[in-house]
Amino acid sequence: MLKGKSILEPMDMTTAELEEIFDLADEIIANPPRFAHACDGKLLATLFYEPSTRTRFSFEAAMLRLGGQVIGFSEPNSSSVAKGESIADTIRTIACYADIAVMRHPKEGAPRVAANSTDMPVINAGDGGHQHPTQTLTDLLTIRRRKGGFENLTVGLCGDLKFGRTVHSLIKALSRYAGVKFVLISPEELRVPDYVRRGVLEANNIPFREVKKMQEVLPELDVLYMTRVQRERFFNEDDYIRLKDRYILDAEKMQLANENMMVLHPLPRVNEIAVEVDSDPRALYFEQAKNGMFVRMALIMKLLGIEVE
């Protein structure tokens, strides 16, 4: 039962609940006007303590396309946060006005503090380098629409696997499907954190390999998930500069991949995917961005317990 729940990480949804969300998202994609008034009279609060384009716009567009309204801030300096208000107090206040909230925060676990302080559903829209469950919904919906499901997939994740919150969430979510294998492509310094390697992969006996070169593994992948090396997560600029251009996917490398491999990217990209790849039918990152709005529409409806006849 998703009604009234907070979604802080992918494991907050069972695989059955994920299927419910994806089924609803498919229905919305097939017939958007049917859902145009699903959230009439409902209010979504967006609390963005960190810059965002896609996630914030897609949540706002999702709520508006469901007939609901949106309040919030995208710049913490323009809110009481600048006066030193705690996350707990901010969310308690906002819960007096809104029906559901979305939070992005640079500190890991901030949405959990919010969720622990209110009965209103809180959705984590990215907390530091930790988790990003709704990006995972987007990723999974895109995979499901192309591959029909998740079992027996070989998934390559490439780039910044240490601070890449979308990577952590996606591994967690996919770890529950039979036959899934991971190939983790990153430099030594940007490998997945311990809680993912030991707490998720090793704890569940999921096959995974850690490699440094993309070319050697491309032929075996069903999905290649590219990520950006995130400047904002580094304490040291020199480290960022040294690592930022380590992996660049271009047309030449795409020739090594199988013809059904999906290329996904949570976006924004910098230069880890050459623009020439965009025209390749296997490049699905813009489709992924579009699916993001629909799957968030489905999630909002589920958390608010709204059904459409």
């Binding site: 705690s86 996350i87 707990a88 925060h105 640079p106 500190k107 890991e108 676990g109 901030a110 959990r112 503090v113 907390d127 530091g128 380098g129 930790h130 809680y195 707490g199």
Partner: peptide
Amino acid sequence: RCVTSVERNAPHIFHLMDAQTREYRCEYC
């Protein structure tokens, strides 16, 4: 990077991850 470094009143909560290695995991991060 944990929220407990800035949120004054958030209790520091840890859950047992592995009894053999006596390792605990932060509830938030």
